[in-house]
């Protein structure tokens, strides 16, 4: 049972399963604690109106029990055994730390989420790339000071005119919880065309990513911590570092939820011979994202599948006389958007956009179907008796000189006899 075809064998839209595309993938981080071993302290809530306490840990990259490597970002997220990546201590400004995740293929993503082991950053930015990290564009910003940090308004309104615009919000930037806080960015939430995604190339483009980059720009600052004796009005976290807590970013789970992008023409993605993830394309499509028609399937332009139409690529009709064809938009429009394929290099002495008639110098053998390789026979016009080499493509009749007859013009007509002149091979009998 192939999800790309129904019971009758007709093509229908198919999509790969929804996954956490980040799971098990390597994340490049600009900072990781433990080289050399370092001590980091954090404030832990205890609940029940009991005061928060300060706890300190050693991070040692060489000791697996005390290491917090980047691989912990995308490993199995278990509440019983929470593993966290942790940055170096942030002693001086700037406090930028970057996480870069390469998906290795285009995905259509629905959300990006981060579960923190430290307090959530005060400012962070999410960027996306659609070209494997060559260029980056903003995807979403979080900050309690959107204008100051990112020069964007807080919670701007999204309309149909700016659906591909990154927003900034001050949500999710609260200090509390001190650990376990979540930042979740939903790519379609609040975007007007999200309800009509099939018909919105803009949003289809918006959710397409090959790489995700998260930049933590600033941790919660001391004055926002409000921790009494250890707090300070300074903008510099270092002022409380020595007395209460060190500042670092720590994340237990980094998820990117979405589907391998196959444009509705594959139900799964597989690894190719080189280990690259590619769509298992159906509907006569090919390419990493099933983003083009297979050779010889150019009778109509490639299109993404949707709920109503599979839009499969259709083969050109060349009557078995050509192996290649091309698409012609003008012919396609003239046909009422039905057929635009033009056969190339028609063989077996055929011609025409569908190799559906005989080329000059040949005529159709009506005893055979047009698909037969000998459907076209040579005219075989007589070199002297015929006035040319091209015969009637239907009957095979060559154009005869005066007084000459026969399909190939090889005999003198009744009342004529052969002369010695090749120019007038038959002359009237006196």
């Amino acid at each position: 049972l192939d999800p790309c075809y129904d019971d009758t064998g007709a093509a229908r839209r198919c999509i790969p399963e929804f996954i956490n595309a980040a799971f098990g993938k390597e994340v490049m981080v600009s900072s990781v604690c433990g080289r050399p071993p370092s001590r980091s302290c954090s404030v832990v809530e205890r609940g029940d109106d009991r005061p928060s306490v300060r706890t300190c840990q050693i991070c040692d990259a060489a000791d697996p029990r005390r290491a917090h490597p980047a691989s912990y970002l995308t490993d199995l997220n278990s509440a019983h055994n929470l593993t966290c990546w942790q940055s170096e201590n942030l002693n001086t400004s700037p406090y930028n730390v970057t996480l870069t995740l390469s998906l290795g293929k285009k995905f259509e993503i629905t959300y990006v989420s981060l579960q923190f082991c430290s307090p959530r950053p005060e400012s962070l930015a999410i960027y996306k790339s659609m070209d494997y990290g060559k260029t980056w564009m903003p995807y979403q910003f979080y900050s309690s000071q959107c204008r100051r940090m990112y020069n964007r308004p807080n919670k701007a309104t999204i309309t149909k005119q700016n659906e591909q615009e990154a927003l900034c919000t001050d949500g999710h930037t609260d200090l509390y919880p001190l650990s376990g806080g979540l930042i979740a960015f939903s790519t379609l939430d609040g975007r007007p065309s999200g309800k009509d995604f099939d018909n919105s190339p803009v949003l289809q483009d918006w959710v397409t990513v090959t790489d995700i980059r998260v930049v933590f720009n600033r941790p919660q600052l001391p004055r926002e911590l409000g921790l009494g004796a250890g707090g300070s009005n300074s903008d510099d976290p270092a002022s409380v570092t020595s007395t209460l807590a060190t500042y670092f970013y720590a994340v237990g789970d980094f998820q990117v939820g979405g589907r391998c992008k196959c444009n509705g023409h594959a139900s799964r993605c597989l690894k190719d011979k080189e280990g690259k993830l590619v769509c298992d394309c159906k509907h006569n499509t090919e390419g990493p994202e099933c983003d083009r028609c297979k050779p010889f399937h150019y009778d109509r332009p490639w299109q993404r599948a949707n709920a109503r139409e599979a839009n499969e690529c259709l083969p050109c009709n060349c009557n078995l006389h050509a192996r290649r064809c091309r698409f012609n938009m003008e012919l396609y429009k003239l046909s009422g958007r039905k057929s635009g394929g033009v056969c190339m290099n028609c063989r077996h002495n055929t011609a025409g956009r569908h190799c559906h008639y005989c080329k000059e110098g040949f005529y159709r053998d009506m005893a055979r179907p047009i698909t037969h390789r000998r459907a076209c026979k040579a005219c075989d016009c007589h070199p002297v008796g015929a006035a040319g080499k091209t015969c009637n493509q239907t009957t095979g009749q060559c154009p005869c000189k005066d007084g000459v007859t026969g399909i190939t013009c090889n005999r003198c007509a009744k009342g004529y006899q052969q002369s010695r002149s090749p120019v007038a091979p038959c002359i009237k009998i006196p």
């Binding site: 007589h382 070199p383 002297v384 090889n410 003198c412 010695r420 090749p422 120019v423």
Partner: peptide, 24 residues
């Protein structure tokens, strides 16, 4: 009545060498 096919050997090619088929 079926007329005989044209006999290439009967033609005089003297003034029409360029028209003469190769195998004549």
């Amino acid at each position: 009545e079926v007329m005989p096919t044209l006999d290439m050997a009967l033609f005089d090619w003297t003034d029409y060498e360029d028209m003469k088929p190769v195998d004549t």
